[in-house]
Design a protein around this nucleic acid. Structure first.
Length: 152
DNA sequence: GCCAACGTTGGC
DNA sequence: GCCAACGTTGGC
């Protein structure tokens, strides 16, 4: 069982939306970055745990947790012409973008602020705190996960 | 809203 | 294969 961190913009889709998702399962669609895609395609497994991170908002930081419920499948939005994530270069035989499904696990009472994560000496290796890093899905080591959970 | 830093595209 | 231009990310 591995830990991950996934970024979202709560104005578009945040921990509350995840919590209230009808059917309780959310397709993490719209990821259009190869490194992030590779993590979902190759490494994320059913049962893995996910920290949900809120970016570009008032309270930037980790807002809660989710669980991976379905592994690697083609992101349906890449074939949908009406979607902002439509990719004309992708075909159903040779899909370019893959995703996973997750479900809500818990919402933290308070967001763990990015500033606290940045200030924690044991979390300096996370891509999240590296200057200029825009990676939207990243692995979290067991040690880092344990540390983060003490900060809730 | 600003702007630094990044990833992708496309001309050559 | 290089690299400038562009669009996007994301903290502040």
């Amino acid at each position: 069982m591995a830990w991950w961190l996934m970024k979202s913009e709560p104005d578009a889709f945040g921990i509350d939306d995840l919590k209230n998702e009808p059917g309780k399962t959310t397709i993490w669609d719209g990821v259009r970055n190869y490194q992030a895609r590779n993590f979902m395609r190759d490494e994320m497994k059913k049962g893995d745990q996910v920290f949900i991170y809120h970016s570009s908002c008032k309270e930037v930081g980790i807002a809660g947790e989710a669980t991976v419920v379905k592994e690697c499948f083609p992101d349906p939005t890449q074939f949908d012409e009406s979607s902002r994530y439509f990719d004309p270069k992708s075909t159903p035989d040779k899909p370019r973008w893959f995703t996973v499904s997750i479900k809500f696990k818990k919402k933290y009472k308070n967001v763990i602020p990015l500033a606290d994560i940045k200030a924690n000496p044991q979390l300096q290796e996370m891509a999240l705190v590296k200057k200029g890093s825009r990676l939207s899905i990243m692995p979290v080591t067991d040690k880092e996960a344990e540390m983060i959970k003490t900060m809730i």
